[in-house]
Design a protein around this nucleic acid. Structure first.
Lengths: 134, 134
DNA sequence: GTTCTTGCAAAATATTTGCAAGACG
DNA sequence: CGTCTTGCAAATATTTTGCAAGAAC
């Protein structure tokens, strides 16, 4: 689905920043940080605009955010768009890449009585295939 | 094991801030934030001192850090101290508590060839037993 | 006494908010 | 044209660094 369609469906205006974020993320096989997205875009946007655009897209579940250790913050298209199941994320210590592991479905474990699970997040850290084989 | 022993074993000086952090965390059944620890301590410490103490204790694997969505940052005693296996963390949307789920061992899934797993982090979000049953 | 830690000040970084101008539909 | 978005400035919040005084050993 194209950015314009996506935005239209959820009643958001088709603005250059949103459009840029969505298409940049969609083209990338890894999750991207604000800076990585910024570098790939032709047009310049204020940092505030990025913050607000990310927030809007997150609220509308167009994208999801992956945070590694409070340091690395990356974004990827959300499940509802890619129709993928909830998945684990991989973080490479070497190159810093964050990858959505669509083939690794996340199943919530059984918790003690009384606990209600809404979401389970899995971040696997190590070396990605490229860095490991170097 | 007491704070003094712990610190001595890894060649760290026995200072009031480190001592306070370790004993406060050890006494709590949930992971604690900087502010929660600060409130429980009698003595006051500069924020810089907390940052540096946490860093030192993290580096030496005395404690571990749990970050939820880049917002909530909490600390708990590390595995090497409590001798517990690597475990999942639970975050309650309602009360904000972060709990080490020692009974939920974390097993790393099988990744595609080439990937090397060093660590797997699991954060389960929802309602804790107390908030859920209210 | 030597080395490491602390508190303070300040720098660097990250995030949020208000507001007027401009773009979208 | 009414509403939402953007960029800029500024307010907040967070984290890091330098340095001299003090504590640990």
């Amino acid at each position: 689905m194209k950015p314009k369609q996506i935005l239209h469906e959820i009643d958001l205006k088709f603005t250059p920043c949103r459009q840029g974020i969505i298409s940049t993320i969609a083209e990338s096989k890894n999750a991207l940080s604000e800076n990585e997205i910024k570098e790939k875009l032709d047009e310049k946007f204020d940092r505030t605009t990025f913050y607000r655009s990310f927030k809007t897209l997150l609220d509308k579940n167009i994208i999801h955010k992956i945070v590694v250790d409070n340091q690395v913050v990356k974004y990827a298209l959300d499940n509802s768009i890619t129709l993928k199941v909830h998945h684990a994320h991989f973080y490479c210590y070497q190159c810093g890449a964050v990858k959505c592991m669509d083939e690794i479905p996340v199943t919530s474990p059984k918790l003690p009585d009384g606990f209600y699970i809404q979401e389970t997040e899995v971040i696997i850290k190590g070396l990605c295939d490229k860095c490991n084989l170097k």
